[in-house]
Simulated scan of single mutants.
Amino acid sequence: MIKVSILYPYRENGHFDVDYYRVTHMPLAAKLFGPSLKGWSVDVGVNAGPPGTPPPYVAAGHFLFDSAEDFYKVFKSAAGPLTADIPNYTDGGNGTILISEIKISV
């Protein structure tokens, strides 16, 4: 299984509407990705470790797929609408994409 993460860097005085991202943008992505998507979540940055420090990322969106190929197939057609929606929740542009393989150990 792979996780596609979109990381949005913290910027002093930057705008990021977490509620819009969580309630509107991520469900839009889930709808566009369809049944290939196995799950999604949103992280909101709190700090960089010590209390009162700004987080390195203001938010991160995560999507689970069985494989990177499954993600690439659905992302091609979803990229346009998702990119067009970015100004509705941030003035910081596209986030950084990280594709990682999930390894579970108990």
Rank of each mutant, 00 (worst) to 15 (best):
2 I>T: 02
3 K>Y: 08
4 V>I: 15
4 V>D: 00
4 V>M: 03
7 L>Q: 04
7 L>M: 11
11 R>N: 07
11 R>L: 09
13 N>W: 03
15 H>S: 13
15 H>Q: 13
16 F>D: 00
16 F>K: 00
16 F>I: 15
19 D>Q: 14
21 Y>W: 10
22 R>A: 15
23 V>M: 12
25 H>E: 07
26 M>F: 06
27 P>I: 05
27 P>Q: 12
27 P>E: 09
28 L>R: 15
29 A>T: 02
30 A>L: 04
34 G>H: 12
35 P>R: 13
37 L>K: 01
37 L>I: 06
40 W>H: 07
40 W>T: 02
43 D>C: 12
44 V>R: 10
45 G>K: 01
46 V>R: 14
47 N>C: 13
47 N>A: 08
47 N>M: 08
47 N>R: 03
47 N>E: 08
48 A>P: 00
48 A>W: 13
49 G>D: 04
51 P>F: 09
52 G>L: 09
53 T>S: 15
53 T>F: 13
54 P>H: 11
54 P>C: 09
55 P>T: 02
55 P>I: 05
56 P>S: 08
58 V>C: 03
58 V>H: 00
60 A>P: 01
63 F>P: 00
65 F>C: 02
67 S>V: 10
70 D>L: 05
72 Y>L: 09
72 Y>T: 15
72 Y>V: 15
73 K>C: 02
73 K>W: 03
73 K>H: 11
75 F>E: 04
75 F>H: 15
77 S>H: 14
79 A>D: 11
79 A>P: 03
79 A>R: 12
80 G>E: 14
80 G>F: 04
80 G>W: 04
81 P>W: 09
81 P>S: 10
82 L>R: 06
83 T>N: 09
83 T>Q: 07
85 D>P: 05
87 P>E: 07
87 P>N: 11
89 Y>S: 02
90 T>M: 04
91 D>W: 10
93 G>W: 06
96 T>L: 04
97 I>M: 09
97 I>S: 11
98 L>R: 11
98 L>P: 01
99 I>M: 11
99 I>C: 05
100 S>W: 05
100 S>D: 09
101 E>W: 12
103 K>W: 14
103 K>D: 07
